[in-house]
């Protein structure tokens, strides 16, 4: 049994397997299928300062080896999270991290301040990369100046572990990661979904009400791996890798590319118990290769 513990900033994780925001609700949706206490952490559904209805149906289209979504940050707002959801999930023995989304710096800061008061939430993931709402933060996430500005403001308001989720829809993700690191982020998570679209040739109409949406699933994994590798070798803060991880072998690839932890997203929809299986598979891999710690393979790509 290898040592799977990792650290992100001040925060310790029992293992490096977490679940990606927007694919795992608030954890409760999965308790019929798996034991939440067995994974390293949960990134909640994107939470905004106020209730959001999200985009109109249809919001989803299946694509080759993946799917597009355009949910548009549907959530009941941070106050509802604090009063109604937090009390039910706070005592799980895993790191529950709130994905903080917004469209203005003031909204990000106000939401982060409220979450900062919650004892059992040890970290937030700042979502500056949602492609599905007009002002879903991607306006901040696609430029170094914008990313730096929002992280600087939230860093002042939020005292615990601050993870910033990066958009792949940029020319140079490395420079954005560096800008975020310079402003005091404890970690970066990447990648959010890739902007894409799908068309029904018979009806000549888009499949999504918003025309474009975010692409996820195994089809994005090579892009995600490349970006994680590029960022991890440049920044000093730990990188959380995600994008198309369907099994333990995929997760191992992200560790080799330099990720300290991983998030499982779309795969949860196909196998709601996959995250626990990935923990077991990583352990089996480390044992089989004679490694005593997950850190033995982080960034161990032989190139």
């Amino acid at each position: 049994m290898a040592d799977l513990k990792i650290r992100i900033g001040e925060l310790e994780f029992k293992n490096p397997v977490t679940t990606a925001s927007g694919t795992f609700g608030f954890g409760e949706e999965y308790t019929d299928f798996m034991d939440l206490n067995r994974i390293g952490g949960i990134f909640t559904k994107g939470t905004t300062i106020r209730h959001r209805e999200g985009n109109a149906y249809p919001r989803m289209a299946e694509t080759p080896s993946g799917m597009l979504n355009a949910v548009g940050l549907q959530n009941k707002g941070v106050d509802y999270f604090i009063s109604s959801i937090y009390p039910r999930i706070k005592d799980y023995d895993t790191n529950i991290m709130v994905n903080v989304s917004g469209s203005t710096i003031e909204d990000y800061v106000a939401t982060a301040e409220k979450v900062n008061e919650l004892d059992k939430i040890p970290a937030i993931e700042l979502n500056i990369s949602c492609p599905n709402v007009k002002q879903g933060g991607m306006t901040f996430g696609v430029s170094c100046a914008g990313a730096a500005e929002v992280v600087r403001a939230v860093r002042k308001a939020y005292s615990k572990t601050l993870i910033v989720k990066l958009s792949p829809n940029v020319t140079d993700i490395v420079s954005i990661a560096q800008a975020v690191e310079d402003e005091g982020a404890d970690s970066v998570s990447l990648i959010n979904t890739l902007l894409g679209m799908a068309i029904d040739a018979e009806t000549r109409k888009p499949y999504l009400s918003t025309i474009t949406g975010g692409l996820s699933g195994p089809c994005v994994k090579p892009v995600a791996l490349r970006m994680v590798w590029q960022v991890a070798k440049t920044v000093k803060i730990p990188v959380i890798g995600l994008g198309g991880i369907m099994n333990a072998a995929d997760a191992i690839e992200f560790f080799l590319a330099g990720a300290t932890a991983i998030q499982i997203g779309t795969a949860n929809f196909i196998d709601p118990a996959i995250s626990v299986k990935v923990v077991e598979g990583i352990n089996e891999y480390l044992d089989r290769h004679g490694y005593s710690s997950i850190y033995d393979i982080i960034g161990a790509l032989e190139a």
């Binding site: 949706e29 999200g54 149906y57 989803m60 979504n69 949910v71 549907q74 779309t266």
Partner: peptide, 27 residues
Amino acid sequence: ENKMACGFGACLCCVTQTQSGHKCVCS
């Protein structure tokens, strides 16, 4: 029978508009 991804209320893809906002058809 809206188009679904997860089927158990996690992804929020299959919503229908109701008198009390979007609801998941699956859950």
